[in-house]
Computed example of a mutant assay.
Amino acid sequence: MPASGLPAPTHRDLDQVTQALETISPRWNAWILMTLTTPGRYMDLKARMPWLHDGQLQPKLRLLEAGGLVQRTEHTRRHVVYGLSDKGVRLLPVLDTLAEWGRHHLERPTTKDPVTKKETPRSAAKAEEIEDALALISPRHATAILWALRVRNASTAAALASSVMPDAHPTAVYHPLRHLTIKGLVGRDREGKFTLTAAGRALTPAYQALIAWTTGSPASYTASPTLRPVPTQTGPDPRMTAAALETTPVAPAWKPGDLFSHTSVARPLPAAAGVARR
């Protein structure tokens, strides 16, 4: 990964977080990991995620196994069970933090009411919240920009470019800035400087959890997973019909002085700045 230009220890933490995001952000990975809180055979996983075909599910399982998140246990040649590895289990608090942020700070998905024909808000599955949150912070330079704005509070585009992408042309910073602005994570203050919105600032616990996971810091997680039956897909978007895996996590405690250690917004803000777009 190219140097970010940020001073240590920010640079080290940023590298670790970016690498973690590259591992967990590909589409459907969150669904697979959440589903694997209940170990099962390959056919069990297919039944829980019927929208994923063999050509999609099997390669993802292999990559997650290679990344150390999934454990494949072969009892006999015909009896193979998939489950989360220890590293995968330690990732669960991270996923739960991302889901919590999504519930409070992502705009509500909508569906058309068959009677009124109006678009009405619908609830989102936990794995959907996680994947939508990851989609906002995993694009190239997105996390580095959010990180720099968290450290600086407000910054010009030129200053961000020099710290986040020092080897690129200064104008290259505008594309990821535009993405983050459209998605509601970045705004501008009265002086025209870029700054984090309420939704952007509220990502603090997610980055804390990612740092703890990548550094191997202990994080507690108590869950009683219950997988609700997955109904047959009836619409174009399978995430609208799939059930979420319900868990009861225990949030990790953070040490004073950790980067991103301030307290985040506990509830979604009514102002538009507190809501990010999916």
Results as ranks from 00 to 15, higher is better:
Arg72His: 08
Ala159Ser: 14
Glu100Ala: 11
Ala266Asp: 05
Arg239Ile: 01
Arg201Met: 13
His175Phe: 07
Thr181Cys: 03
Leu98Thr: 03
Arg239Cys: 02
Arg90Val: 01
Gly67Pro: 00
His79Met: 12
Leu177Gln: 03
Val115Phe: 09
Thr111Arg: 11
Gly102Met: 05
Thr241Ser: 12
Thr73Gly: 00
Arg239Gln: 11
Leu227Cys: 09
Asp258Ala: 09
Gly102Trp: 01
Pro229Ser: 10
Gly5Asp: 07
Ala3Met: 11
Ala168Leu: 12
Asp167Thr: 13
Ala198Pro: 00
Pro176Glu: 01
Glu107Lys: 10
Ser264Tyr: 03
Ala212Glu: 10
His179Pro: 00
Thr18Glu: 15
Pro236Ala: 14
Gly187Ile: 02
Leu210Ala: 09
Gln208Lys: 07
His262Trp: 04
Pro256Gln: 03
Arg150Cys: 04
Gly257His: 01
Leu149Arg: 02
His179Ala: 11
His11Trp: 06
Glu107Asn: 10
Pro176Asp: 04
Leu134Asp: 01
Arg12Ala: 15
Glu129His: 14
Val186Lys: 05
Leu180Gln: 02
Ala202Trp: 05
Thr37Glu: 15
Ala223Gly: 14
Lys183Cys: 14
Pro59Lys: 07
Arg41Tyr: 04
Tyr42Thr: 04
Leu106Thr: 06
Thr248Pro: 01
His169Arg: 10
Leu63Ile: 13
Lys60Asn: 09
Arg201His: 14
Ser25Tyr: 06
Ala159Val: 12
Thr215Gln: 15
Pro270Cys: 03
Pro236Glu: 13
Ala276Val: 00
Arg150Thr: 13
Thr97Lys: 01
Pro59His: 07
Ile24Asn: 09
Trp213Ser: 10
Gly200Leu: 03
Arg277Ser: 12
Ala253Thr: 13
Glu22Ile: 05
Pro9Gly: 11
Thr37Met: 15
Arg190Gly: 13
Thr248Asp: 06
